[in-house]
Design a protein around this nucleic acid. Structure first.
Lengths: 133, 133
DNA sequence: CCTTGACCTTCCCACCATGGTAAGGTTTAA
DNA sequence: TTAAACCTTACCATGGTGGGAAGGTCAAGG
């Protein structure tokens, strides 16, 4: 199977497949005499795993680790769980940051009339010279 | 005022100040004979504006626009409002993505015993061969 | 006068993840 | 034989931030 077909089957862009290989996340593909990468069903399986992990927001590094645990039959699932929990914590932090931004933005947008007047509460807040920050 | 002092006063890293200048977000600072950038109180004010906008998650590009509207006395505040609303929408999309990831992660983590057994629901989900995805 | 340390300058490289494009080789089908 | 659809590597871009090297400048103190 060429890279284009495995890309279709796994829904992972060919460019990303090459990059995953480059970064050691997936094993190096064997090559034809002409240099074309060759793949099997197993690789489709691996790439789908990668894709799913990435969709859940795991970093490349974490995904690499998860793959390692996946193929390691001697793993303990506590390792997987702690990786997932660490990631969850990071996501929650991001979530909080965004929520904080949104709540401020909400207030500002509500206070702004949005007409042609030049006085704008949003800019006044950003100006921030009343010691709010 | 040198860049170090304006950095302290505005809480914006000197490195970022140079970058903002490079990208045309803030005006080019005048220089001493030796080439040192010179700043005034006004620049501190501008940089605080930038900092606040960045803290609210506005991109460099948006921040540049906001600065333009800020110093333009002929602005209509509807322009500011629509910029803020566009940003709010983007933040909400990010928020939804993260929430979706978190809810899936939550389920997976709860189902995983986290002991030394090798069978792990998290990996099974990532493996994703049951046609869930 | 000279050194030392704290500043400043530019330049390049790193991260993370992805996408584009250019220049070239290969395979397949018409 | 040629055209298209594929493949290869290599470089550049994004967005935002940080590190560090190599070098110039300035003030204080011996």
């Amino acid at each position: 199977m060429n890279i284009g077909e495995v890309a279709k089957l796994s829904m992972v862009n060919a460019k990303m497949i090459r990059r995953y290989e480059e970064q050691g996340i997936i094993p190096k593909a064997s090559r034809t005499f002409a240099g074309y990468r060759q793949y099997s069903e197993k690789d489709v399986h691996i790439l789908r795993f990668v894709k799913r992990a990435r969709e859940l927001g795991f970093s490349m590094k974490d995904t690499k680790q998860l793959l390692g645990l996946w193929k390691n039959q001697n793993r303990s699932n506590s390792q997987v769980k702690s990786l997932a929990q660490k990631h969850k914590t990071e996501l929650e932090e991001k979530l909080n940051e965004i929520q904080a931004m949104l709540s401020t933005l909400d207030v500002l947008i509500k206070h702004c009339h949005g007409d042609s007047r030049p006085d704008c509460p949003i800019l006044q807040e950003l100006e921030c010279h009343k010691g709010r920050h």
